[in-house]
């Protein structure tokens, strides 16, 4: 036996397991996406069993592409993922830099900062949409109502009254409305995932070389220059990691969308798959294949970006 054979033999079970793990679901999805397969159809009961005789070719794909919700779902998936990534990375870097300095109560602040990450997604969505974003009973509704009341009072005041009478009464935003429900999802997921970014950036900041900073101080670098030329490049790698992991997670957001609007005008691809899967497994599988393609495009794009930051 050559000295390579044994290691390879020992790796084989793991590799085979991984292949089965990935290939079986993928090939089943592919198979279902090319046949007619529904859960319930009284007129054509033969479609309720998956069989090669129900071959539909690209019919399911055609059906999905012509569905009015499909392109909206693709757009929405990208909008939600990109916005959350953008916000969490910026907030994460700012907060991590802020709490990297020693101050009294720092460890307590750190624990509190991490806590949103431990909230279940569904609970998070219910909390936000009912208690904070609700236009009547939520914090938002109360705040808008309060401001309006103050302005109404000021309008009756002498002297300054005429100035405030020009102000319009503020309208609370209904985040369950179709156009704004995506923003509600973005807000609540950003709140939940910023701690993850903070955690990763914080550990990275702690490994930053202090002598480099001191050298930069002696070289005359201002606090901003130190951040721009030392800290940000140092954070390049963790930023890439945060972007990659979060992209994978947020492409498959589901609970938040279900709770905020039940997919009403705000679907993403997983939600669309879920709707199809109520009955039409063939169409759901075809959408799943589109989702795989989209995920791959995003992954290639991200890997390029990460590769660039690592090479620099």
């Amino acid at each position: 036996m050559s000295n390579r054979t044994l290691p390879r033999l020992l790796q084989t079970p793991a590799v085979i397991l991984l292949l089965i793990w990935m290939l079986v679901p993928l090939s089943m999805t592919l198979y279902f996406s090319f046949i007619r397969y529904v859960l319930n159809n009284l007129r054509r009961p033969e479609w309720t069993t998956p069989s090669i005789e129900n071959w539909r070719g690209f019919g399911n794909y055609n059906f999905v592409l012509n569905n009015q919700d499909f392109w909206l779902a693709v757009q929405n998936s990208l909008l939600i993922v990109c916005s959350i990534l953008f916000l969490t990375v910026i907030l994460g870097v700012l907060i991590a830099v802020l709490i990297n300095k020693a101050f009294p109560g720092r460890s307590l602040v750190r624990v509190l900062l991490i806590s949103p990450f431990f909230v279940m997604p569904a609970v998070n969505a219910v909390l936000w949409i009912n208690m904070i974003l609700d236009p009547v009973l939520g914090l938002q509704g109360l705040a808008v109502g309060g401001i309006n009341a103050v302005i109404a009072d000021l309008q009756n005041a002498p002297i300054i009254g005429p100035f405030f009478s020009l102000w319009p009464a503020l309208e609370p935003i209904s985040f369950r409305a179709t156009q704004t429900s995506a923003y509600a999802v973005i807000i609540m997921v950003t709140w939940q995932w910023t701690p993850f970014a903070v955690l990763i950036f914080m550990t990275s900041l702690q490994s930053e070389d202090q002598q480099q900073k001191e050298a930069a101080i002696l070289d005359g670098a201002s606090a901003w220059s130190q951040f721009r030329f030392l800290t940000l490049p140092h954070l390049g790698r963790p930023i890439a990691i945060v972007v990659m992991i979060q992209a994978i997670f947020h492409l498959s957001l589901y609970a938040e969308i279900e709770i905020v609007s039940r997919g009403n005008g705000n679907k993403n691809l997983p939600y669309l798959i879920g709707e199809f899967a109520n009955n039409n497994i063939g169409a759901a599988s075809a959408t799943g294949i589109f989702a795989v393609i989209l995920a791959n495009i995003v992954a290639i794009f991200l890997l390029r970006m990460i590769g660039k930051t690592l090479m620099e």
Binding site: Q211, Q212, E214, L218, D219, G220
Partner: peptide
């Protein structure tokens, strides 16, 4: 930075993501 002194550190404290040229140029750039 205003004392007009230069320091060489034990761990060199070079800026790892900059080229040698940029490292040497850094204090002048600042």
């Amino acid at each position: 930075s205003k004392r007009g002194l230069s320091m060489v550190f034990q761990t060199y404290a070079l800026y790892p993501h900059m080229t040698v040229r940029k490292n040497i140029a850094f204090p002048m750039r600042m």
